[in-house]
Measured scan of single mutants.
Amino acid sequence: IDAAQIVDEALEQGITLFVVNNRLQYETSRDSIPTELLNKWKQHKQELIDFLNQLD
Rank of each mutant, 00 (worst) to 15 (best):
I1E: 10
I1F: 13
I1H: 11
I1S: 10
I1A: 10
I1V: 12
D2H: 11
D2T: 15
D2F: 12
D2S: 14
D2A: 09
D2N: 14
D2G: 10
A3I: 14
A3F: 09
A3Q: 03
A3M: 15
A3R: 02
A3G: 04
A4L: 07
A4C: 06
A4Y: 07
A4F: 06
A4N: 06
A4V: 05
Q5Y: 08
Q5L: 11
Q5H: 08
Q5S: 13
Q5M: 12
I6Q: 02
I6C: 04
I6H: 02
I6E: 03
I6T: 04
I6W: 07
V7I: 14
V7D: 00
V7H: 04
V7P: 00
V7W: 06
V7L: 08
D8K: 15
D8W: 15
D8F: 15
D8P: 01
D8G: 12
D8Y: 15
D8M: 14
D8I: 14
E9D: 06
E9H: 05
E9L: 04
E9W: 04
E9Q: 06
A10W: 02
A10S: 05
A10L: 04
A10K: 02
L11C: 09
L11W: 10
L11F: 12
L11H: 08
L11V: 07
E12L: 10
E12K: 15
E12W: 07
E12R: 15
E12Q: 14
Q13A: 13
Q13K: 09
Q13I: 07
Q13N: 14
Q13F: 15
Q13H: 15
Q13S: 07
G14A: 04
G14L: 04
G14H: 05
G14T: 02
G14S: 04
G14V: 02
G14Q: 04
I15Y: 08
I15M: 03
I15D: 00
I15P: 00
I15L: 02
I15C: 03
I15G: 00
T16I: 13
T16A: 06
T16F: 14
T16P: 02
T16M: 12
T16W: 11
T16C: 13
L17K: 00
L17M: 06
L17F: 05
L17P: 00
L17I: 06
L17E: 01
F18E: 05
F18C: 09
F18S: 12
F18W: 09
F18L: 14
F18Y: 13
F18T: 14
V19Q: 02
V19K: 01
V19D: 01
V19S: 04
V19L: 07
V19P: 02
V20Q: 12
N21S: 07
N21E: 10
N21V: 04
N21M: 06
N21L: 06
N22H: 07
N22K: 05
N22I: 03
R23F: 12
R23V: 15
R23S: 15
R23Y: 12
R23L: 14
L24R: 00
L24Y: 02
L24W: 01
L24I: 07
L24F: 04
Q25F: 15
Q25R: 12
Q25Y: 15
Q25I: 11
Q25P: 00
Q25M: 15
Q25N: 10
Y26L: 04
Y26K: 01
Y26E: 01
Y26S: 02
Y26I: 07
Y26A: 05
Y26P: 01
Y26T: 03
Y26R: 01
Y26D: 00
E27P: 01
E27C: 12
E27N: 13
E27K: 15
E27M: 14
E27D: 10
E27R: 15
T28I: 03
T28N: 05
T28M: 04
T28K: 03
T28A: 05
T28C: 05
T28Q: 03
S29L: 11
S29P: 06
S29E: 14
S29R: 08
S29H: 09
R30G: 08
R30F: 06
R30M: 07
R30S: 08
R30V: 07
R30H: 09
R30Q: 06
D31W: 04
D31K: 03
D31I: 05
D31Q: 08
D31E: 13
S32R: 09
S32W: 11
S32Q: 12
I33C: 02
I33H: 02
I33T: 03
I33V: 13
I33K: 01
I33F: 05
P34V: 03
P34M: 03
P34G: 04
P34H: 04
P34K: 03
T35Y: 10
T35S: 12
T35P: 13
T35L: 15
T35W: 11
T35V: 13
T35N: 11
E36T: 08
E36I: 09
E36V: 10
E36D: 11
E36F: 10
E36K: 08
E36W: 10
E36Q: 09
E36A: 11
E36L: 08
L37G: 01
L37V: 05
L37Y: 06
L37P: 00
L37I: 05
L37A: 02
L38E: 06
L38F: 08
L38V: 10
L38P: 02
L38Y: 08
L38W: 10
L38G: 03
L38N: 03
L38I: 12
L38D: 03
L38M: 10
N39R: 10
N39A: 12
N39E: 15
N39L: 12
N39V: 11
N39P: 02
N39W: 10
K40V: 09
K40R: 07
K40T: 09
K40L: 13
K40D: 03
W41G: 01
W41V: 12
W41M: 10
W41N: 00
W41D: 00
K42I: 15
K42G: 08
K42E: 15
K42M: 13
K42Y: 08
K42R: 13
K42P: 02
K42F: 14
Q43C: 05
Q43T: 11
Q43A: 13
Q43R: 11
Q43L: 13
Q43M: 12
Q43E: 13
Q43P: 03
Q43N: 11
Q43I: 12
H44A: 07
H44C: 05
H44R: 04
H44F: 13
H44T: 04
H44E: 01
K45V: 14
K45R: 11
K45L: 15
K45M: 15
K45F: 13
K45N: 15
K45E: 15
K45G: 10
K45H: 14
Q46A: 10
Q46V: 08
Q46L: 07
Q46K: 11
Q46S: 08
Q46P: 05
Q46G: 06
E47K: 08
E47D: 09
E47V: 13
E47H: 08
E47L: 12
E47Q: 11
E47N: 06
L48R: 00
L48Y: 01
L48C: 02
L48H: 00
L48A: 01
L48G: 00
I49L: 07
I49D: 00
I49R: 02
I49P: 00
I49S: 02
D50C: 05
D50T: 10
D50I: 11
D50G: 06
D50Y: 09
D50A: 13
D50W: 09
F51L: 04
F51S: 01
F51E: 01
F51D: 00
F51G: 00
F51V: 03
F51W: 08
F51N: 01
L52T: 00
L52G: 00
L52P: 00
L52A: 00
L52W: 02
L52V: 02
L52Y: 02
N53L: 13
N53M: 12
N53R: 11
N53W: 07
N53S: 12
N53Y: 07
N53C: 07
N53Q: 10
Q54W: 12
Q54Y: 11
Q54F: 09
Q54M: 12
Q54V: 09
L55E: 08
L55V: 12
L55I: 13
L55H: 12
L55Q: 13
D56Q: 14
D56T: 12
D56I: 06
D56P: 14
D56S: 14
D56E: 12
D56K: 07
